[in-house]
Amino acid sequence: MRELLFQITLLGYLAASCSYLMHIASGRNRPAQIGSRLLRGSFVLLSLALVASLLPMATTPASRPYLPLSFLAWSVTGIFLWFEGRHRLTVLGAFLAPLSLLLLVFSGALLRRGDGLQPLFESSWFPLHVGLVVLGYAFFALAFIAGVMYLLQERMLKNKHLSALFFRLPSLDSLDLVNHRCLAWGFPLMTLGIITGAAWTHAAWGRYWRWNPKETWALISWLVYAVLLHGRLAIGWRGRRAALLAILGFLCLILAVLGVNLLASELSDTALRAAVKR
């Protein structure tokens, strides 16, 4: 049942992605309307799927490996739907729906791999940490997409080369506003996420900070966002510079999440096995 719900959600996201891409390609408004409705529907389904996957489990939700990714897709979609109506950001959906779809496919693959629960994750800090961090990621992901779109459009405006895409992008001002909003929400969430993460690390290993690559990259991206926030609030940075920093910060985050996390664990695994064999 849970599986089926999840599959239907995937299909919904796929259909929404196609509609939004059709909107971009053709410039017609109808596919965007359909895409928006499909995305709303898929969001509801995903919410149900998430609740359903929480119910039968006695243990903490975030310790299931696939949940954080699904939760990330859920947060990204939720934030987008929240912003969409206010800032006329329809085109963002063309970037966002496929991203969420990718996250869900990933989480589905991880689910099938069936990683078991490890006792390490049974601290009560862990779900709190994951929840906060994932919500922060979702805001930063949106800031990243808005940043890319800002740079695209800014370049077109400066070069006076207006392609078909130009006419469908939201205004620079609203993209900058998304950057600001996402930073204002994402930064506190990520800060709290890092603090709870340290608390969890302490509970699990007895140390607050271990300087592993993941933690280091998370710290670097936190610093990038801190600089950006300070620049925005104190110096009045905005526009291109803010967009660039939002992109840089998110690239660091991706390194922290995907690259380092998966790669490092695989590497240490194989290295361990090789050592045992010898």
Partner: peptide, 26 residues
């Protein structure tokens, strides 16, 4: 009009200026 957006773009200098301004400022 609704499916092709044929009337969406403007063709006079002053309208073009307004359109660009809206692209920048919303």
């Amino acid at each position: 009009r609704s499916e092709t957006g044929i009337a969406c773009q403007t063709l006079s200098i002053s309208y073009a200026a307004v359109e660009l301004a809206r692209k920048i400022f919303g």
